[in-house]
Structures are given as structure tokens and as C-alpha cells.
Design a protein around this nucleic acid. Structure first.
Length: 909
DNA sequence: ACTCTGCCCAGAGGA
């Protein structure tokens, strides 16, 4: 049976004399998991149940011999899983102990990647450095990736030359940045491919082989995930681009293969043979011991190796759970042979970390060390949240998961169609309501119903409506799609923070930490002649030698100001990076910029970097295509004077090779500090534009990431900031509340026309035709709600009637927007109102505006709940309309909070 | 208690 639970106290490790001699044992007090679903977990295929019988009381699990090493890692509160345990009666109590078939897994829901384990076995410090500073663009890595892709193609039956041609073409941009020519790269790949082909031929001659390539595997039991290069007859095959003339495979390569063996074991395999394919070994190289010419090395993976791998994995999981930083002493690697030695010493020196390699250089100032510590923790908190999302893949039932919007279930599989290159196009019919987080272009786990234990594939969504089209390596009879969680964003945040602190120049850090005041050059030019603050903002942005901060409340022409500033920079010959957190914000800013840049620079000197699915269709012509001739691709990017990309893309390998004079970050109040750093790290100076009175960054965990760099710098360097104070959007009556409540009364209409705008200005609309209660630009409709928690059908019905009234007064449906706090209420309202009325959450309405806005508060009785606590959300909701705003809600509930009460008074006037 | 966007996933190799 399997035992799973939470460590309930201190672990006792000691030696005892047994009939086999001296043995080590560890006694772990364990509170068995009370989650009933645990019992269904099939884990390993021996039919055991996964949980200890009915109890909440603490029991004891004895871990024998080598497992005591994992026991030493345990802290109270950690999760523990022991497979194939035996039950023992001791002093009338039921206890458990490991058997010869047991595995001990620390924090099993923390999914460790195979690469992590491979790095860790070499040196835990190497694992840490990889995570912290990332791997820069370099040729050996790109070539390795290419060889793997070609290998995969060969296994799927693609023609060799065709594959090489296509794969090299796809990597044009990266190869160009590395200064490689296609002909030379192809030639090198051919050499590796010859070894692969020769080996494949051997296999075909001798027996029927069954092959799988690039299989993504997740183990719920061992807490490991990874992608096997290939699986032959159920056994892992690892491809290596390098040379190895020794008889034995490298140890870390064996460990990697053993990881896949564990993963395959959980998926029903039972193998003890691993194959490593060193494709640089050629016929000219003779194995020094065996004289063997083939590149393939087969080896046996014994029980001991597999268990050792799980113990390694436990070390990582325990360290990540505790939030520790490895020193290198955990391993017996020799630092003098390590090619990361210098980096390791510098990092430990700068961050004042204990390290086996020793320290070089001077430690960062205390405040920077403290900053590093705080943000390292915060980012790792986020990472743990991503890990919890992985765990939900098996902890949630399909229905729970679909409710969570992270999956589409009960699809009806329609057909499979082979594509060129051996991939497949799969089609399924979406039977349910398609209200999920999944979007076109996303990578998902496509499965036959169970993404972890069943057959599943990493697939890309090509089309998503009633009929779903995906592409994948294997023809899964897909009936379910799951979000595949990714640590990519977290990884990039960490690297961005590392770069800002360890690679950033000193002057930049003086500014970020408030040790110096931002400086400005004097600029005489007038950029905008009818709006002083906008002009001041452009002047500051252009003249800043360090940074400028532009605070732009709703409707104040933030986007125009940015575009004007960038134009001025471009005219001065500067290279500019335009960034924001979301693709939508980047595209909006770029759209305004293109208008400004007409006649200033050629269109082809403006480049949008990002994925095809992320970029808005009308910006597609500016998108940097990665595939193509290397020289040509790299010229397009280097020649660009303006590059636009999300902050996440700014952290990509390609973007990190780029340098700019200025980085301009829009919607900067929605960005975490490390997120902002990803963009500004690439430039000499920066301009942040945003409004910290609107919504803050979206983060998974409650931590230091919730305050933006923008907001912090506005406080730290008020003299670098300027607030745009004239708004071009709202009727005066509408803007009054937000102005007083959020902007100290400083926000005012830009012109008398704006102040006086009403629905009457719109063609064919007459306010007289509205009920009297709606004739004022701001009105309140008191609805006693239906008392349900996240929806309110009474409000929804009333809103439908309001929309009819506006239509009757001559408004187009497309001129009306409805905003609600909860997604559930958004879908409730959507069922009541016509399709062409925009209905969305407050959060998603940020950044846009409408002639008429109806707000559904969805609260009866009281205003309790986190969504109402952040007043910035009301600021966003109330500042979306131009000409009319209708608040719909329960007056009694709204009056229970002072801010909402003031809002009520204003609306009812 | 709720809100929710990014990202080619994980791994590619050097000595």
C-alpha cells in the first residue's frame, strides 16, 4: 500500500542492529492525508490504495537505510509519500515502514523537471545558477536543439534533407544572431544525422521497433516531469550531440535516462535498459576500451539507480519547499573542473552566498541584498503556485477542472489527418459551452480523458470554436484539453531581477535604490502646444538621462503622449524599445505610434516581436518572422529603430541580445518590479507610463510583487514624474467622483466640449426618449439582488431592460458596455443581453472605453469579498464611459462601505 | 472568498 501524509513533527534518525547487520532508520511522525480522493490514486500498478485508513491521528512511518537521506530533508508540514509500504502493529498502533520495493517521495506534488535533476546531480549550485541567470543564446545549444528536432522528424518518417532544410529555416533569426550560415549549420547537422540514421537502420534490420518521439511525461507518484527524446519498445533513448569515447555513458546522462525510465514505469512500462546516442561519435572514432564504432551505448538501469534518482529529486523538492539556496557542498563535484566556476564565484561573491567554489568580488550593498532576498522569495512563491497548478491536473476531477476554466472536457473526437513532417492534425467537436482559459495558439495537454495517467500529448490549439483543431506529434483520440502550466514567466522574472542587480550598471541601481536623483537634459522644443502636462511629459521623457515617470489617469491621452515622445526620440536618432505587460497594450501603443511615425521613418524600421497568436491581426505586417535566411532575419531586427514586445518577450534569448537607447513601458502600474526590469534592462534609460490608481499587477501569490516599480519610483522620485491632468473622455459629471476620490480633484476635462458631452451629441440619439431616471449622465438603479454569491439574475434582467431603453433612444448596441466584478456574473448577463453588447469583467475593461457603461455590482446585503476591497477596481469601472454611466446594485449593500457610499451619493445627486 | 496575461514546452551543450 501507499502511505501519504504530512510530516507532523521532528524526524528521528538512528542506527540499529538488525539480523542483516547495522542499519539506518528514520522514524517520521506522519498525519495521513485525509483527502478521500487520494484513495483512488492508482499510482504504481500494484493495486494498492494510496492512503492510510481513516485517521487523522498521527502515525509513524519508518524509512530504512538510504531513504534516511531523504528523511533528513523533511521538515514538519512537508508532504511525504511512501510507495509499497508495509503495515506493522506496534504497541497496539498501526505503523508503516518502507519495503524493498518502496520509493520515498518528498513533496510529491512539486513536479521537478528532468533537466533540473540532471543539473543537480552535477552540482546543486549549477542547478541554482541555471535558474538564476538563465542560459544565453549560444551556438552549441541551438545546434543541439536542431539535431534533436531532426532526430524527432526522422522517427516520424520525414525525409532527412527535407527535415534539415525546414528546421534550419525555422531557426533563421537565432542562427543569424549567432553569425552562422545555413550551409555550414546544415553540414554539421548532417554529420550527426548520419550517426542517427546508421543506428536506426540497424534497429530496422534486426526487429520490429516501436517508436515514440518527444514524449511529454508526468509522474504523479515521483513528482517528476520531462520530455523523452525517444522511446523505443518502451525504453528511453537519449540523444546527445556531443562526443563520448568512453565505454560508459556519462553519469548525468544515465541519471537523465533513469528519470525517463521512472516516468515510463508509471505509464505502464517496465524497463531496465536505457540507450544513449552520442551522435558525434563517428566511424573514425574508436572506443578506447571496446573498439566499438557505433554511437549508441546501452546500459542497465538497476533499482539502485532509480532510487538514487528519486532521492536526488527529493533534495530539489525539499530545497525549493524550504526556500533554501544550495552551496555546492551537497555534491562532491570538483569546482576546478567546472566551466561555471567563475560565474559561480562571482554570484556568490556579489550575493554573499556560501559556496564551495569560493567568492570573488565585493558583496552588493545590504539594501540590494535585502531586495534580492525579498524578490527571490516572492518569485519562488509564484513558482510554487505554478507547481500547484500542475498538481491540479490529477487532484481535480475532470468536472472540477472544467469549472475552473482550465480544461475543456467531453469533446467528441472527429478525425485525424497526417501532416507533412510526420505530425498530425486532430479535430474534435466541442460539446459543452466553451468558457475556458484556453485560446488559439496555446500549448495544451491533449488527452483521451486523463492528461496524467492516460495517453496525452503536448499539442497546439490551431482553431477554437465549435470545432476544435489541434496539431500534435501523435494521433491522440482527443476528448479533453488541459492548460499546460508553464514556469517560463517565472523563470524570466528571476533572470530579469538577477540581471538588474548583478549585470545592471551602477548608475541605474543608484536610481532604483534612491541613492541618486534622476537627471534631465534641458530640452527647448515644444512638442505639444495645447496641453502643458502632455508637453512636459514628452519633454521629460526625451530629456531624461535616467528615467521619467508619466502618470496618466483615465482618458488623459497617455497613448498619444507616448507616441509623440517616441517620435521625438526616433527623430533624435535613438533606438527605442516599446513594451507593456499585455499584447493588447503593446499593440494599442504601437498603433498610435505608427500614426506618429508616418513620414518619419520607413515602416520596415518598426518591428513587433512576439508570437503570431499573441499579436493583433492588423499588426501582423510588423511582426518579426523568425524563420528565413539568417542574415536577412537578423538584419530586419538590427535595422529596426523601434521594437515593440511584451515584457515577457523582452526576457527571451533573442531580445536579450538587443540593446536600446530608451525603453518605454506602457501600463507600467500593471507590472511587477522584475517584470519591468525585463524591459528596462535592455536600455540605457527608461520611461514608465501608467496609473497606479488603476489595477495592480496580476500575481498568483500574495507577496512583494504586488507593488509595481512604477508606483515605487513615483514615490521615490516625484521630481521625475509628471501627471497628465486633462481627460478627453468623460462628461464632467462622470469624471467628478474619480477625480475627487483618486486624483485629489486634479483630473479635469480637457475642453468645455468634453465636459459637456452627452448622448445627444451622437447621431440619431435623443436623451428625451430615455426614461427620466436615465437622462442624467450618471444614474443609479437600485435593485435588490437575488442574494446569490457571484451572480445576480435580478440585476442581469434589469440591465437587459436598460439596454433596451438605450436602444430605443437611438443608441447602437456596439456603443454600450456592461461591466461586472465576477466572471460568473459576466456570463449571467451575457445570457440576458444581445451578443453585440460588450460584457466583461472590470479587469478586462481596463484600457478601453464606451459611450454608455452599465456597471453591475453583484452584491446584496453587504460588500464583503476581496474583489470589492480594492478601490482601484471602482476607479476603472467608473471611468470607462464617455457620455453615460449607470450603476446597478443594491443601495443598502453599497452604503455599507464609506467609499461606495460616497459613490452612491454622487450617483444619486 | 475574486480578478487573470504571459510564454514555443523542456532541454539544448561545453570539458
Amino acid at each position: 500500500m501507499h502511505v501519504r501524509g504530512t510530516v507532523a513533527g521532528e524526524v528521528d534518525v538512528r542506527s540499529v542492529a538488525t539480523s542483516y547487520g547495522e542499519s539506518e532508520l528514520a522514524e517520521v511522525p506522519l498525519r495521513p492525508a485525509d483527502d478521500a480522493r487520494n484513495g483512488e490514486s492508482p499510482a504504481r500498478g500494484d493495486g494498492g490504495t494510496a492512503t492510510v485508513a481513516d485517521g487523522r491521528e498521527t502515525t509513524t512511518v519508518t524509512l530504512w537505510n538510504k531513504w534516511t537521506e531523504s528523511a533528513e530533508l523533511l521538515e514538519p508540514g512537508m508532504e511525504l509519500l511512501v510507495t509499497n509500504a508495509k503495515e506493522e502493529e506496534y504497541q497496539g498502533e498501526t505503523q508503516y515502514a518502507t519495503t524493498g520495493d518502496s520509493y520515498v517521495v518528498v513533496e510529491p506534488s512539486f513536479l521537478v523537471s528532468v533537466t533540473s535533476i540532471r543539473n543537480w546531480v552535477e552540482c546543486p549550485r549549477l542547478y541554482y545558477l541555471n535558474k538564476l541567470s538563465g542560459v544565453p543564446l549560444n551556438y552549441p545549444v541551438v545546434k543541439g536543439t536542431l539535431v534533436h528536432e531532426v532526430f524527432g522528424d526522422l522517427l516520424r518518417g520525414r525525409d532527412l534533407e527535407e527535415s534539415i532544410e525546414a528546421r534550419v529555416e525555422e531557426r533563421g533569426l537565432q542562427l543569424g544572431l549567432l553569425g552562422e550560415t545555413p550551409a555550414a549549420v546544415k553540414e554539421e547537422i548532417r554529420e550527426n544525422a548520419t550517426a542517427i540514421e546508421g543506428w536506426l537502420e540497424q534497429g530496422r534490420l534486426t526487429e520490429e521497433d516501436s517508436w515514440r518521439s518527444e514524449q511529454l511525461l508526468i509522474s504523479e507518484t515521483f513528482g517528476i516531469r520531462g520530455r523523452a527524446d525517444a522511446v523505443r519498445r518502451g525504453a528511453p533513448v537519449e540523444l546527445k550531440t556531443g562526443k563520448n569515447l568512453k565505454k560508459e555513458p556519462r553519469f548525468k546522462d544515465k541519471v537523465q535516462a533513469a528519470c525517463y525510465a521512472l516516468l515510463l514505469e508509471e505509464h505502464g512500462g517496465d524497463v531496465d535498459i536505457g540507450t544513449l546516442l552520442y551522435t558525434k561519435n563517428s566511424a573514425l572514432d574508436r572506443n578506447e576500451e571496446t573498439g566499438d564504432l557505433t554511437p549508441a551505448k546501452e546500459f542497465t538501469m538497476g533499482d539502485g539507480l532509480l532510487k538514487y534518482v528519486v532521492r536526488l529529486r527529493n533534495e530539489i523538492a525539499a530545497m525549493e519547499t524550504a526556500g533554501d539556496i544550495p552551496t555546492g557542498y551537497e555534491a562532491d563535484a570538483k569546482c576546478e573542473y567546472c566551466f561555471e566556476q567563475d560565474t559561480c564565484m562571482v554570484v556568490s561573491g556579489r550575493l554573499d552566498q556560501e559556496s564551495k567554489a569560493g567568492q570573488i568580488g565585493q558583496s552588493l550593498p545590504d539594501e540590494e541584498l535585502e531586495y534580492f532576498d525579498r524578490f527571490y522569495r516572492a518569485i519562488e512563491d509564484e513558482r510554487r503556485e505554478v507547481h500547484r497548478e500542475y498538481a491540479k491536473l490529477w487532484e481535480q476531477t475532470a468536472e472540477e477542472r472544467a469549472d475552473d476554466d482550465r480544461a475543456l472536457i467531453d469533446l467528441e473526437f472527429l478525425e485525424k489527418r497526417p501532416l507533412e513532417g510526420g505530425r498530425w492534425e486532430l479535430r474534435a467537436h466541442n460539446t459543452g459551452g466553451a468558457n475556458s482559459k484556453l485560446r488559439e495558439g496555446d500549448l495544451v495537454l491533449a488527452s483521451d480523458g486523463d492528461p496524467v495517467r492516460g495517453s496525452s500529448e503536448l499539442a497546439r490549439i490551431e482553431r477554437l470554436d465549435d470545432e476544435i483543431v489541434i496539431t500534435a506529434d501523435e494521433p491522440v483520440e482527443v476528448t479533453r484539453l488541459d492548460v499546460y502550466p508553464s514556469e517560463l514567466t517565472t523563470d524570466r522574472l528571476l533572470v530579469a531581477m538577477h540581471d538588474a542587480l548583478l549585470k545592471g550598471d551602477d548608475r541605474r541601481k543608484e536610481i532604483l535604490f534612491g541613492r541618486a536623483k534622476p537627471a534631465f537634459d534641458t530640452i527647448e522644443e515644444t512638442f505639444i502646444d495645447n496641453n502643458d502636462r502632455q508637453n512636459e511629459a514628452v519633454t521629460k521623457a526625451v530629456g531624461a538621462t535616467d528615467c521619467a515617470l508619466i502618470h496618466g489617469p483615465p482618458g488623459t491621452g497617455k497613448t498619444y503622449t507616448i507616441a509623440r515622445a517616441i517620435r521625438a526620440m526616433v527623430e533624435r536618432g535613438e533606438r527605442v524599445l516599446l513594451s507593456a505587460f499585455t499584447n493588447r497594450a503593446v499593440d494599442n501603443a504601437l498603433e498610435a505610434l505608427l500614426e506618429q511615425l508616418e513620414d518619419v521613418i520607413d515602416e520596415d524600421r518598426v518591428v513587433r516581436v512576439g508570437s503570431e497568436s499573441g499579436i493583433r491581426d492588423d499588426m501582423e505586417p510588423y511582426r518579426l518572422e523568425r524563420a528565413g535566411d539568417p542574415e536577412d532575419r537578423v538584419a530586419t531586427l538590427q535595422n529596426a529603430q523601434v521594437v515593440a514586445a511584451t515584457t515577457s518577450t523582452c526576457g527571451s534569448r533573442v531580445m536579450k541580445e538587443q540593446a536600446f537607447d530608451v525603453a518605454l513601458v506602457d501600463e507600467a502600474a500593471q507590472l511587477t518590479e522584475p517584470g519591468t526590469c525585463a524591459a528596462i534592462n535592455l536600455a540605457e534609460r527608461f520611461v514608465l507610463v501608467g496609473d497606479h490608481e488603476q489595477l495592480p499587477p496580476v500575481v498568483r501569490a500574495e507577496n512583494d510583487l504586488t507593488e509595481s516599480l512604477f508606483e515605487r519610483l513615483v514615490d521615490l522620485h516625484p521630481e521625475a514624474g509628471v501627471m497628465l491632468d486633462r481627460q478627453y473622455r468623460m462628461n464632467q459629471r462622470i469624471q467628478a467622483f474619480a477625480s475627487n476620490e483618486f486624483y485629489d480633484g486634479q483630473l479635469r476635462p480637457a475642453t468645455p466640449d468634453v465636459a459637456a458631452r452627452t448622448l445627444d451629441d451622437l447621431e440619431g440619439v435623443s436623451r428625451d426618449r430615455l426614461p427620466e431616471s436615465l437622462q442624467d449622465p450618471v444614474s443609479f438603479v437600485d435593485v435588490e439582488g437575488d442574494r446569490s454569491q457571484y451572480t445576480d439574475s435580478a440585476e442581469a434582467a434589469r440591465i437587459a431592460a436598460l439596454i433596451e431603453a438605450y436602444e430605443a433612444a437611438g443608441l447602437e448596441r456596439s456603443e454600450i458596455g456592461v461591466i461586472a466584478p465576477f466572471r460568473a456574473q459576466v456570463s449571467e448577463i451575457s445570457t440576458h443581453v444581445p451578443d453585440d453588447v460588450a460584457v466583461d469583467t472590470v479587469d478586462r475593461f481596463q484600457g478601453s472605453s464606451q459611450e454608455v457603461i452599465v456597471v453591475s455590482f453583484t452584491a446584496t446585503g453587504s460588500l464583503e469579498g476581496p474583489i470589492f476591497e480594492d478601490y482601484r477596481r471602482i476607479n476603472v469601472a467608473l471611468t470607462r464611459p464617455k457620455r453615460a454611466l449607470v450603476l446597478v446594485g443594491d443601495a443598502a449593500a453599497l452604503a455599507s462601505d464609506p467609499v461606495y457610499e460616497r459613490m452612491l451619493e454622487w450617483a444619486r445627486r
